[in-house]
Design a protein around this nucleic acid. Structure first.
Length: 222
DNA sequence: TAGGCCATCTGGTCCT
DNA sequence: AGGACCAGATGGCCTA
């Protein structure tokens, strides 16, 4: 629940509130795990609590101990005022955490909806969004495609994305140089999302940031 | 070691 | 007043 609040509160009350901990990395980096999981138990976060965090790139990231940045302005406030503020802050933190968890859950759902990937691969957030965008783009393009019916951009599975929707214009290039997700209907092997995820190929013309997506480029992620 | 990705905290702003 | 959303900051973990 809010073991965190208490811990943090105590901690902050202890001085963090007045002294920006940020300034002392040494302190901030202390025992990584001590309080790391203290707030694991989300207060309510029913559906939100993603439970054990989704496997990241194969590794579990640990929750960092709360890093209280001090609000110097509270220095003058009365203790009760500080407490009140602190309490609100902690509650807000919890909500924010839950919100982000929900956002991540949605992102995971999106990942799941995208063409299969090798199990050992996982698109980053930005890659997921870009790839989803590309995928939708490709599907839409496939629907508009005249001529003999052709299967929608088959999910470029690891093994093979048929990419070929001929030349399905793959928006592959919406990505930035560093992470351009693979285009859905990209060329064979080379274009598996995972592959691309790993090897950012980036379409030329991508904005430095890669977003917003520009013109779909033909070709894989390369 | 640098760079990328990510989780969390935090304060501000807007909305109900 | 309280919650949702947002963006900046910070630091942990991992890979090249």
């Amino acid at each position: 629940m809010f073991a965190l609040s208490e811990a943090a509160e105590a901690q902050e009350a202890a001085g963090a509130l007045a002294l920006p901990r940020v300034a002392s990395p040494a302190a901030a980096r202390t025992p990584p795990r001590a309080g790391a999981d203290q707030d694991r138990g989300e207060p309510g976060a029913p559906g939100a609590a993603p439970g054990p965090r989704p496997p990241g790139l194969g590794h579990e990231r640990r929750r960092r101990p709360s890093r209280a940045r001090a609000a110097p302005r509270g220095a003058r406030a009365t203790e009760t005022a500080q407490r009140l503020r602190r309490t609100r802050r902690l509650k807000a933190n919890g909500r924010e955490r839950r919100r982000m968890h929900r956002l991540n859950a949605a992102l995971d759902a999106l990942r799941a909806a995208l063409p299969t990937l090798p199990e050992d691969a996982r698109l980053t957030k930005i890659q997921t969004l870009r790839f989803a965008h590309n995928y939708i783009w490709a599907l839409a393009a496939a629907l508009r495609l005249p001529g003999p019916p052709r299967p929608p951009p088959a999910p470029p599975g690891p093994a093979g994305a048929p990419g070929s929707a001929g030349h399905s214009p793959s928006p592959a290039s919406t990505g930035s140089g560093t992470d351009s997700p693979a285009p859905p209907s990209a060329p064979p092997a080379a274009a598996s999302p995972a592959r691309c995820a790993r090897s950012p190929a980036s379409p030329a013309g991508a904005a430095p940031d890669g977003w917003p997506p520009r013109r779909p480029a033909v070709g894989g992620c390369a």
